[in-house]
């Protein structure tokens, strides 16, 4: 089963006002893989992800989830198969933290069915996993950006889908929580597809990294295979030194500043 393809993107293209934001994207994500999506700002990461979680309707190409065209899956079924955590959230709807997490159970409920004990237990379990169990009764709007993000992750996890798609989940988070969230995702028994801003975090956690630039696919492979000074120069116009960490055994990127006046 290890090689079953979970998500398959075929020749995907998406344009806004005749301007191609992403073009001819092909990629595959296998079951239980942890895949990172990397690329400079404006390279189309969010657009690609939005096509995958059905906010955008692609202009070209198709996306398959478990071999099924995603636009042929019913909304509730889709939410049971793929959960999503996005960076921005403009909610003005003042729920308690626990209620917010319970929203993740929507797709599992029948019409008129009230939340069951199991739903509640699940919500509490995931709240505890993101370290927010003390905040249950707090109002969601009163939380800080990082706290909100952790609650939203708990919500996505409580959907209990076996694929989770995330758009820069560690944005705005303190370092501790960046690693905590990635640890948490890594320990789940699900397929993870996430865009990542920080290359070192991507190198540590991802089984595979997919690289985009200017809306086009650049390369994909394990962190060891693809993270090279050449690629980083190409993507970010930065010089770097890449070593292998003795602790994690993963590539570690040190960016080199242009300023040359440092003491040696």
């Amino acid at each position: 089963m290890a090689d079953t393809i979970k998500l398959n993107v075929a020749e995907l293209g998406y344009t806004i006002d005749h301007h191609a934001i992403i073009d001819d994207i092909n990629l595959e994500i296998k079951k239980d893989e942890f895949v990172g999506l990397v690329g400079p700002n404006g390279c189309g990461k969010s657009t690609l992800l939005k096509n995958i979680y059905r906010i955008y309707q692609p202009d070209k190409g198709k996306i398959f989830l478990d071999g099924e065209d995603i636009h042929k899956i019913k909304d509730r079924e889709f939410a049971k198969k793929m959960s999503v955590m996005v960076q921005e959230n403009s909610v003005e709807f003042d729920l308690t933290v626990l209620d917010m997490v319970m929203m993740g159970r929507f797709a599992h409920k029948k019409l008129l069915q009230d939340s069951t004990k199991q739903d509640m237990a699940l919500a509490r379990k995931y709240l505890a996993e993101v370290g927010m169990e003390e905040y249950e009764e707090r109002s969601f709007l009163s939380l800080s950006g990082g706290e909100k993000q952790r609650v939203l992750l708990a919500r996505a996890l409580s959907q209990e889908a076996d694929l989770i798609v995330l758009d820069e989940p560690t944005n705005h988070l303190d370092i501790k929580f960046q690693y905590q969230i990635m640890d948490l995702l890594k320990s789940q028994d699900i397929t993870v597809f996430t865009s990542v801003h920080d290359l070192n975090i991507a190198a540590i956690y991802c089984d595979r990294i997919i690289v985009l630039k200017k809306g086009k696919f650049v390369t994909a492979g394990t962190p060891e295979e693809i993270l090279t000074p050449d690629l980083i120069r190409y993507l970010y116009d930065m010089d770097s030194i890449i070593t292998i960490s003795e602790v994690t055994g993963k590539p570690q990127i040190q960016f080199l500043p242009n300023f040359k006046g440092f003491k040696s």
């Binding site: 019913k74 909304d75 079924e77 959960s83 996005v86 709807f93 929507f106």
Partner: peptide
């Protein structure tokens, strides 16, 4: 209605038609 209040994008990903 609760789900809808979370915004269109979030509502879609949570399974609302």
């Amino acid at each position: 209605l609760d789900i809808l209040m979370l915004g269109d994008d979030a509502a879609t990903t949570l399974g609302l038609n």
